[in-house]
Computed example of a mutant assay.
Amino acid sequence: MRLLWGLAALLLVSAGCAQVDTPAQDALRVVLIPADGGTEDGTKADYQPIFQAVSRMTGLGFDIRVGQSYATVVEALCNGGADIAFVGPVTYLQARDRGCAELLAVGVEDNQSTYYSGIFAKAASPIRVIADLKGKRVAFGDVNSTSSFVYPMAMILDAGLDPVRDLGAIRMTGSHAESLAALVQGQADAAALSFDSFEKAVAEHAIDPATVRVVARSPSIPYPPLIVSTRVEAGLKAKLREAFAGVHKAPGVTSDMIRGYGGKKIDRYDTAFASGQFDVAGVVMAKLDDALKADILRKASER
């Protein structure tokens, strides 16, 4: 019988639970970064279909929760409070480097396992290129988010701007959806988020794409992975990898259940994706050392 969530995990992870077929005490504990969905229930709904499909294949149950931040997801994995997590590339590298997580599966769409980060402004705004962000208010997601913080900040640095000195204000919203909302509501002049999150908002009619301009698009980023705790026994990890590798063609599983980042329909999962392919995100992450991040967060607190 699997261990129940400990007190530490309860403090780290939001209390809501989405069980999939099996009582919580027998289920594998899944924690999701609060990247998208707009709400905790929305984030869970993005990933329930794929875990329901794997549960149907294997008989395994999954207890799905949403972390309060990207960092708490890493802590849940590293402190024994979670078995599986959906994370961004940078969050995966943080967990990998602490020796508490390894790749489980990476989504594939059109034979690609990549996505993109962007900086967006209103179409009527004078902001057209990154240099135009000087003196402007910019919204970012979580400080550990690959596509709503790390890559956009790196693009700003590469454009010759000092985010602390040159941006008018920095707003840390905690998620892609909240950053976009800050832009729409006039609380920021520009917003950093993934293109997947932007396209999801458009599909849900949360924003009219004609009212928004793409200021910058990142280079391709390795797709946000599913990762598994190193504490999970080898046989169970092998069973999970076999299931994710074949779930797209399993009897009784529909194509609508094969979901990836942000609940987007994808073609399949790759369980042989090489961990080293994420090192490119590590190179970008290295542009933001601890001192710079501390200065950025200090500026963000000056509101």
Rank of each mutant, 00 (worst) to 15 (best):
M155S: 03
A159P: 03
G174L: 04
A169C: 10
A169K: 10
G160A: 05
P152T: 10
H176W: 05
A181M: 13
P152V: 04
D189I: 11
T173P: 05
A177M: 14
H176E: 04
T173N: 14
Q185F: 07
R171W: 10
A190T: 09
A181V: 11
D189Q: 10
L180T: 00
M153R: 06
V164N: 05
H176S: 10
G168H: 08
Q185L: 14
A182Y: 09
M153V: 14
L161I: 02
L157Q: 02
A169T: 15
D166W: 13
M153L: 15
M172H: 11
M155W: 09
G168Y: 07
D162N: 06
Q187V: 01
G160T: 01
M153I: 14
Q187Y: 09
G174I: 03
L157P: 00
P152F: 09
R165T: 09
A181I: 12
T173H: 10
I156A: 04
P152C: 12
M155V: 06
I170G: 08
P163V: 10
P152S: 12
L157K: 03
G186V: 04
G160Y: 03
D162V: 02
L180V: 06
T173Y: 09
T173M: 13
G168V: 09
R171E: 15
A177L: 10
V184I: 15
G186N: 14
R165D: 11
P163F: 15
R165W: 06
G174P: 02
P163L: 14
Q185R: 15
I170F: 06
L180G: 01
M155Q: 06
A181F: 07
L180R: 00
G160R: 00
D166F: 12
S175Q: 05
D158M: 11
T173K: 12
I156K: 08
Q185N: 15
D189E: 15
D162H: 03
L180H: 00
V164G: 05
A169V: 13
D166Y: 13
M153D: 08
D189C: 10
G168E: 07
A181H: 05
M155E: 06
G174A: 05
H176I: 00
D189A: 13
L157R: 02
S179K: 09
A190D: 13
V164M: 07
M172A: 15
G186K: 14
M155R: 03
A169M: 14
V184Q: 04
A159G: 03
M155Y: 05
L157D: 00
V184S: 03
V184H: 02
P163S: 14
G186Q: 13
Q185W: 12
S175F: 03
H176R: 11
D158F: 11
S175M: 01
A190M: 13
D158Q: 15
D166H: 12
A159S: 11
I156T: 06
G160K: 01
L161M: 05
P163I: 13
V184Y: 04
D158H: 10
E178S: 12
A177E: 12
D158W: 08
I170V: 15
D166G: 12
A181D: 10
G186P: 08
M155P: 01
D158Y: 09
G174H: 07
A177P: 00
